[in-house]
């Protein structure tokens, strides 16, 4: 564990807590894409299949449980909670996210580190996470108003993978044979997808204006 990875995990944790806080306290999920939340639940479910078989550390297992629990409860809130579900703008959140999953699965079957059931699903979760934010970014461009909790959620979610990139660079230079091209490229693509969001988020913060993504 290094400071970059810890910062990344804490930023990731903060992003899901900000979203849970928003949904739980103001009982609203306006501006949040259910499609992205469903993709994230699938990302964690396919990433953490080894939670019962391989034990890395208390921290690792605890964080996996938190990410699994939070992502599935966010999906539950948005789909089934009587008050929250009414605030979900389903006619705006129309990204066909199942079309994202198939290419990720095919790519995982083609490009992976080891051709085992767990490893292919783990690689699938990596590719899926890289593109999981797309429905949310599309929704953001459609709904003009972005409340700052949703903006913070996306900012933290994008930032965590940026810290992970620093972690990979650090581990590459400090650990012999630490090379994971697949993880690195997927992580880089994921972070680059946030580039324009980061730009407009920074502008809105600098000019102290509402966050507006160009249509």
């Amino acid at each position: 564990m290094n400071i970059f990875r810890l910062a990344g995990d804490m930023t990731h944790l903060a992003s899901v807590l900000v979203l849970l806080l928003k949904i739980h306290t103001i009982k609203s999920c306006a501006g949040v894409s259910l499609k992205t939340q469903e993709l994230y639940a699938i990302v964690f479910a396919t990433r953490y299949l080894d939670i019962l078989t391989s034990f890395v550390s208390i921290y690792n297992t605890l964080m996996k449980l938190i990410f699994l629990g939070s992502s599935f409860s966010i999906v539950w809130y948005m789909k089934y909670h009587k008050t929250v579900r009414r605030t979900y703008d389903r006619d705006q959140d129309t990204f066909r996210h199942w079309f994202l999953m198939l290419p990720c699965l095919l790519l995982a079957l083609l490009i992976h580190e080891k051709f085992t059931f767990f490893e292919v699903l783990w690689t699938f979760s990596l590719y899926l996470e890289a593109v999981a934010i797309l429905p949310q970014l599309v929704l953001l461009q459609r709904t003009r108003n972005i409340d700052n909790l949703t903006g913070q959620y996306i900012f933290l979610l994008g930032g965590y993978r940026g810290f992970y990139i620093l972690n990979w660079i650090y581990r590459y230079f400090t650990e012999p044979h630490y090379v994971h091209w697949i993880t690195w490229i997927a992580g880089l693509v994921q972070t680059l997808l946030y580039a324009d969001f980061f730009y407009y988020y920074f502008l809105s913060w600098k000019n102290n204006k509402k966050l507006q993504l160009p249509a």
Binding site: R5, D9, H12, R47, D50, T53, S54, V56, N60, M63, K64, F67, T116, F118, E119, W122, Y164, N167, T183
Partner: peptide, 10 residues
Amino acid sequence: EEEYFDHDEL
């Protein structure tokens, strides 16, 4: 080597 699942990152 033993078929283990060596992902130590989240």
